[in-house]
Each structure stands twice: as C-alpha cells, then as structure tokens.
C-alpha cells in the first residue's frame, strides 16, 4: 500500500470534520491513505485506490456499493446528510465506517487536505 504524504486514521479524520460516527465504531483506528470527494460514482470507480475515504453529498445505496467494490474503508456524508437505515445496514455488512459532517464538500475536503491527506499520486482530479 502506497503511503500518503501523511496517513491518518478514520478517527482522526472524524475529529477534523467534527463528524458524527453513524456506524463502524470498531473500524476507527484503521489507516486511510488518501481521500476522494465526488458525487459521481463512476469517477470514483475510475480513479480511486483502496483504503481511501469517500466524501460525498450523494445519498443512496450505490455510494456504499461503490465504496465496497473499491475496498474503501470509510464514507463521509457531507452537508449534514443523514443516510437511512438501509444504507447503514449495507455499510455494516461491508465493513465500512460511515460518518456525517455538517461541513460542505469544499470545506470538508479542504480540512483533510490541510491536515496532510492527499489524493492518490496518479489522480489528477
């Protein structure tokens, strides 16, 4: 696994984003290597590496499926979006932590970036 400029744990990301942990309490000490902010799942499927964190304003089960296919370990719903139980259940069964932050996409990504979390090296978006 490629090391980012600075890897952080899901717990650290949650703290930076003042995020509420909706599921995956037991996964918070996992390391994340990079992050991606997008509402287009096909872009995520094209560019992202494993062990990343996905920030999105999109609220449907395909967000979880996308993260699952990509071996991503954490989803952050921005703008205070509250996923329903079906989404959380899917995330639990896939071993994905789900967070929720009041920050909007730009600010949420900016906070993680400023803390040293970088996109994957080959990623241009």
């Amino acid at each position: 696994m490629r090391k980012g400029l600075m890897d952080m744990t899901i717990r650290e990301a949650a703290a930076l984003l003042d995020a509420e942990v909706l599921c995956g309490e037991d996964l918070l000490d996992r390391e994340i290597a990079s992050a991606c902010g997008s509402d287009m799942m096909s872009d995520v499927l094209a560019f992202v590496k494993e062990h990343s964190i996905l920030l999105t304003g999109l609220l449907n089960p395909q967000v979880v499926r996308t993260a699952e296919m990509m071996d991503m370990s954490c989803i952050v719903f921005v703008r205070g979006k509250q996923p329903g139980e079906a989404i959380l259940e899917l995330a639990r069964s896939s071993g994905i932590a789900v967070l929720r932050t009041e920050y909007r996409m730009y600010a949420a990504c900016g906070k993680l970036y400023a803390a040293g979390l970088r996109p994957h090296a080959s990623e241009k978006i």
Partner: peptide, 17 residues
C-alpha cells in the same frame, strides 16, 4: 440517472481498464 451518481460515461472505459 446522473442525480443518482451514474451516467458520467466512464462505465465502459472503466470496464476495459
């Protein structure tokens, strides 16, 4: 479909990749 996060026209290229 775009509102659901798909329809970016990257599916078939992704499958090939």
């Amino acid at each position: 479909i775009r509102e659901l996060g798909f329809g970016a026209g990257m599916g078939l290229p992704n499958m090939k990749k």
